[in-house]
Simulated assay, not measured.
Amino acid sequence: MATNTSSLFTALVGAELRVWNSLEAALTEAGNPLSLGRFLVLRTVRDTRACRIQEVAESQGITLGAASRLVDRLHRDGLLHRTPCEHDRRAIILTVTDAGIDHLASAETIVTAEQERLFAPLSPNQRDSFARALTLIAEASNPARRVTSARRGRA
């Protein structure tokens, strides 16, 4: 018998929350000053060429306003630089400070180890299947797909 969508949703959200909390706890127990959210933002800024607040918002699935407030706090705490873009004075380019890089490097080691621990029960084939399933769910949640599906339902 197939698992119903409500049970799948509950399991997915529950697992995500427990994984998030496990990663947060690992960072805290190791004495790293970054929360998982801050770690993810700093990693995005580090890995994105000419990163702007828009890229932070998109990478984290948050609004521009929320991303702007988060970037402001990271800047205030000395973890990010904000530099006006040379080509578009309205845009701000974000870079990670030396202090941010140090915290990020330490956090990356902790997060990687905890991720390995969490996914250890899955075989390589299970990991591949899980990744494909998550990709399909992410694609289905795309707002453009919801609009297309709604239009087809009205036809």
Rank of each mutant, 00 (worst) to 15 (best):
T63M: 02
T135Y: 10
S149C: 05
V71W: 02
W20T: 06
Q115T: 11
E58M: 06
N32T: 06
S149E: 08
C51Y: 04
E16V: 02
F130T: 14
N32K: 11
R127C: 09
R52F: 00
L17P: 00
A113R: 15
A26Y: 04
V19I: 15
A155G: 14
L42C: 01
L40C: 02
G61Y: 06
L118T: 07
P84T: 13
L118I: 15
R49Q: 14
T95Q: 03
W20K: 11
S59Y: 04
L23I: 15
E29K: 09
E86K: 08
F9C: 09
G14L: 08
A26S: 14
I92G: 00
E86M: 04
E58H: 09
L12A: 05
R145D: 07
A138H: 12
A144Q: 14
A113M: 08
E58Q: 14
P143C: 08
D72K: 09
F9K: 13
N125T: 09
S129M: 11
T109L: 09
T135L: 10
I93P: 05
I110K: 02
S149W: 10
L27W: 03
F9V: 11
L79F: 11
A113N: 15
A91R: 15
L36N: 09
E16W: 07
N4D: 15
I53K: 08
A113G: 12
R69I: 04
I62P: 05
V71A: 01
L34M: 05
A2E: 13
A11Q: 11
S141W: 10
H103F: 06
A67G: 14
I101E: 13
L27Y: 05
L74H: 06
R73C: 01
C85D: 15
F9L: 15
A26N: 09
W20H: 14
V111E: 04
D102T: 08
T3E: 11
R90M: 06
A30G: 05
D88M: 02
I137H: 02
D88E: 12
P121K: 11
A107H: 08
L23D: 01
T10G: 01
R18D: 08
R18L: 14
Q54G: 05
R69Y: 01
H75G: 04
R132N: 14
F119M: 09
E116P: 00
G78E: 01
R89P: 13
D128S: 11
T63V: 02
R43S: 15
H87Y: 10
I137E: 01
A105Q: 10
L42V: 08
N125P: 00
T97D: 07
L40M: 05
V147W: 00
S149V: 09
L94T: 03
A25S: 14
A15Y: 06
R82G: 05
T28A: 13
A30R: 12
A155H: 10
N32P: 05
R52P: 00
R146I: 10
R76T: 08
R145A: 07
D102Y: 04
I101Y: 02
G14H: 05
D102W: 03
F39Q: 07
Q60C: 03
A133N: 06
C51M: 04
L74Q: 03
L118C: 07
G37M: 09
L122R: 09
F39G: 03
L64W: 00
S129T: 07
L36W: 11
R82K: 14
F130E: 05
Q126K: 12
D47C: 03
